[in-house]
Design a protein around this nucleic acid. Structure first.
Length: 274
DNA sequence: TACCAGGTCTGAC
DNA sequence: GTCAGACATGGT
């Protein structure tokens, strides 16, 4: 087991996990357990800073997962330099957020389930999915279930996914699992090309594609537009109609800061910071 | 009872 | 190309 400690100012467990980019985590007596694929780690904040504890062999994985090589102070400084008060406030409020590098398949399944759904129910459904199809594991005395492989998921039919509460999204999951089973590596594609590929999957529209781009492939030039972002956009005086066009406008304006701004804004809007 | 939740798809105009 | 409805489900 290995523990690494980082300054908490730009790495806060509550905001990083609470900003809606990830669904599989759970409180434990020691802190918060975070699950990714088949792995688990313990996240904890105290007077020394924020610590990540993982199996020796998973330390590098979680270093990348939490994007710990990046200077988020510099990201925040660039956003504040734009001189837009609401964005500066949002970036200050959510300064402890880090954009995660999650597994693409798990991220795709999670955000396909997210459509027209609420976060508590998305989480509950994902936990049921893992419990039904994932391998049982133990981390620091706690049992958990790995996220199932595409192969494992492709074995099941729509009726199964409906039975665990996926609703009408069941048919999307069977199709996406079969696609992912091929194991194609898309990480080398440019953002626009990669988005095209994601959009070709059933149940993946612009918003879900952009979430996968941002949270799995770290494409911070993507700006997912949902109900909250659209609301903030209007309040900031935006006039364009239609989420896809709003996304295009915001991405054009904020370039590689898009994804960071989106997360700060989303968290700020939802947590009632304004 | 309605309406909403990190939307997407389909079928009119 | 644009737009309204439908879509499963659980919470308020």
């Amino acid at each position: 087991m290995k523990t690494s400690v980082y300054p908490s100012e730009y790495f806060d467990p509550a905001s990083t996990l609470g900003c809606g980019q990830v669904f599989r985590f759970a409180a434990s007596p020691e802190g918060t357990l975070v699950f990714s694929g088949a792995r688990a780690c313990l996240l904890r904040r105290d007077e020394r800073g924020t610590s990540v504890t993982a199996e020796e062999g998973d330390a590098d994985y979680f270093f990348r997962y939490f994007d710990l090589a990046r200077d988020y102070g510099a990201v925040r400084a660039r956003i504040c330099a734009l001189g837009i008060p609401r964005l500066s406030r949002a970036a200050a409020f959510g300064r402890g957020i880090r954009i995660l590098n999650q597994e693409p398949f798990e991220t795709a399944v999670s955000f396909i389930l997210s459509q027209n759904n609420n976060i508590p129910r998305i989480r509950a459904t994902l936990f049921r999915l893992c419990e039904a199809l994932g391998e049982k594991r133990v981390f620091r005395g706690c049992e958990y279930y790995a996220f199932p492989s595409p192969q494992k998921m492709a074995e099941r039919d729509e009726a199964f996914y409906a039975s665990i509460g996926c609703g009408y999204r069941a048919r999307y999951l069977t199709a996406v699992s079969k696609y992912a089973e091929r194991g194609e590596d898309l990480s080398g594609l440019a953002t626009a090309r990669l988005r095209e590929r994601l959009l070709s999957l059933p149940g993946v529209g612009r918003k879900v594609a952009d979430c996968i781009l941002l949270f799995a492939y770290h494409r911070t030039d993507a700006f997912p537009v949902d109900t909250w972002v659209e609301k903030a956009y209007r309040e900031l005086g935006g006039r364009v109609r239609g989420r896809e066009k709003i996304a295009a406008e915001l991405e054009n304006r904020f370039q590689d800061l898009s994804g960071y701004i989106q997360q700060y804004l989303f968290y700020y809007e939802r947590e009632g910071g304004n």
